[in-house]
Design a binder for these strands. Sequence first.
DNA 1: CCAGACGTTGTT
DNA 2: GTCTGG
DNA 3: CCAGACGTTGTT
DNA 4: GTCTGG
Length: 228
Amino acid sequence: MCGRFAIHSPTDQIAARFGTVGQLPEFGPRYNAAPLQMLPVVRAHPETKERRLGLLRWGLLPVWSKDAAGAARMINARAESVPEKPAFRSAFRKRRCLIPFDNFYEWKADGKAKQPYAIGTTGNEKPDAFAGLWEGWKDPATGEWLHTFTIITTTANDATRDVHDRMPVILPPADWPAWLGEEEAGDDRLVGLMRPYPADRTRLWPVHRDVGNVRNDRVDLIEPINPA
DNA sequence: CCAGACGTTGTT
DNA sequence: GTCTGG
DNA sequence: CCAGACGTTGTT
DNA sequence: GTCTGG
């Protein structure tokens, strides 16, 4: 699955890579992006098709949520069921997005201990993109609107399976127009995009256990650790 | 008709 | 919001 | 995802 | 054990 990631490419580089227009959000490098935080997301305007980079909160709140308490359990959506699940199906049809990332983290269970690994692609162009969904939610208590998102997961590939059996859907640039709704795409096409990233273009390395605590956010969290 | 549910993950 | 169960 | 907390009562 | 917060 995917419950933590890093996005440290400069904001103007993110905008250039995704071809977004308009004002850039205030956002610095993050090495330990966690659920419930405001993070950069790429969306295309349904009419003009212009791509925009904005900050949305990680953890999708369905429109009918009475409060924001359940958001932390909606940080991922399963590719296998997302077209049918009531919490995700309308977002799957109308509100797809891309989440820029440089690498994500998975924890390998090892008895009681858990060893975190950073995972990324071998591509030179950064950042990469997770497939995501977003939703707007109006807080009944305050009347404030909150825009939230979730990251779609699929089965692990041969490079990551030893660490964990699920991984986020990573979309190559060729798939971005269809996913963002700039090209007409039916369910079958969209379902076909949600597949594991090729194992031969995936790399993985162990990192410091400090990444487990969301209060830690340092560049060395993405650096390979020396086997003790 | 109204009431109630609606999600993911990991673990043994 | 939208579907299912009663 | 991990870390950290984990309670009750009555009232408008 | 299970839920909430980040």
